[in-house]
Design a protein around this nucleic acid. Structure first.
Lengths: 123, 123
DNA sequence: ATAAACCGTGACATTGGTGTGAGGGTCAAG
DNA sequence: CTTGACCCTCACACCAATGTCACGGTTTAT
């Protein structure tokens, strides 16, 4: 199938599909006229890529194990687990950072409300 | 004081101080030779800017109320509260997103460990 | 044969605070 | 007068996936 059809089937933009190829995540054949020709398997492949992107992995990381997970169960691809763990640690520290900011903001909001029960003043 | 001294006092890079000026957060005078001349008050001003940046506010948002909060208590600056609330909502949704990814990652890690108690396989 | 709907590549914009380097003034001390 | 430590502006790089032009070739249907 051509790129437009793949885009329609997956909901992923043509631009992104071309980018995935550039990053080594897709390897469509080329027709004589230069058009990309995707196998039917590409559809699932794209959904898999999207799934990993939504986990916050980079195309670089995905490229490292995509080949394997398309053929095997994830558990058989040794690249995956360390990347998941690394990502999890990263997420945890981001959450921590955001929680701290959140507490800080809540404090400050409370202070303002305490100090100014209803009256307001302009600059 | 000149920019180098302000940078040394606050720990903020010269580059950043110039950027703050560009964003309207600092308005140093200029000496005859073109050098920026900061008042002693600038030191506290920079610390205040840093504080807001660490809350995740943009220079644009900070510019909207910095003038006021430097002269009054935050509670008297009406711009502040809505921005805090907006930021808080944003933070909450980011945390939510990260929590979802975290749960997803933990599930997937668990699946892999369940499925592969110890044996590994190469690609 | 012509228009509409595809496809191709290349390249710049986005986000936003900061790093970094080029190229060039200013000024104080030796 | 020279050296070194300041200062100035301008401008590109970064991160990374995606949007969006421009410009041009191909295919399909009328």
């Amino acid at each position: 199938m051509k790129i437009g059809e793949l885009a329609a089937r997956t909901g992923v933009s043509i631009r992104s599909l071309r980018y995935y190829e550039e990053q080594g995540l897709l390897s469509p054949l080329r027709s004589d006229n230069g058009y990309r020709e995707f196998s039917p398997l590409a559809e699932e492949q794209v959904r898999t890529i999207q799934l990993y992107l939504q986990l916050g992995l980079s195309t670089d990381q995905i490229a490292g194990f995509l080949h394997c997970v398309l053929k095997n169960r994830e558990a058989f691809c040794n690249e995956v687990l360390p990347i998941y763990r690394e990502k999890l640690a990263e997420i945890d520290s981001q959450i921590q950072l955001l929680q701290n900011i959140k507490l800080n903001l809540e404090d400050r909001i409370r202070s303002i409300l305490d100090e100014r029960p209803e009256g307001q003043v302009e600059e």
